[in-house]
């Protein structure tokens, strides 16, 4: 199975500049491991201590994975995954 993963500008240093890459995995967690195997270093930008990073949003078919079980979210062939860093900040 194969899933298209859309990569944000700031992480394209890991994908040789590619805006989208293909990866495999029955769950988001497995997908990220496959991404890491093909694009070393990227996992650390997505996952921290076994959890999705607070300020990285990942969507499966337009749904925020936080509502789909997070790293355990299941994936099917042809799914579309989008990675978008949060746009956030502030004086605090």
């Amino acid at each position: 199975m194969s899933v298209e993963v859309r990569i944000p500008t700031i992480l394209r240093t890991y994908t040789g500049g590619e805006k989208a890459v293909q990866a495999d995995g029955a769950t988001l967690s497995a997908l990220i491991d496959d991404l890491e195997a093909k694009n070393p270093g990227i996992k650390d930008r997505l996952v921290d201590n076994g959890d999705l990073r607070r300020f990285v949003n990942i969507y499966v078919n337009d749904e925020d994975v936080r509502f789909l079980g997070g790293l355990e979210a299941s994936l099917s062939d042809g799914d579309q995954v989008v990675v978008l860093p949060a746009v956030a900040g502030g004086a605090a």
């Binding site: 949003n57 969507y59 337009d62 925020d64 936080r66 949060a86 746009v87 004086a91 605090a92």
Partner: peptide, 14 residues
């Protein structure tokens, strides 16, 4: 909704 922090809503961001 804070005087010291901002964040785009994740759905609106997408």
């Amino acid at each position: 909704g804070s005087p010291t922090f901002y964040e785009f809503d994740s759905t609106e961001l997408l």
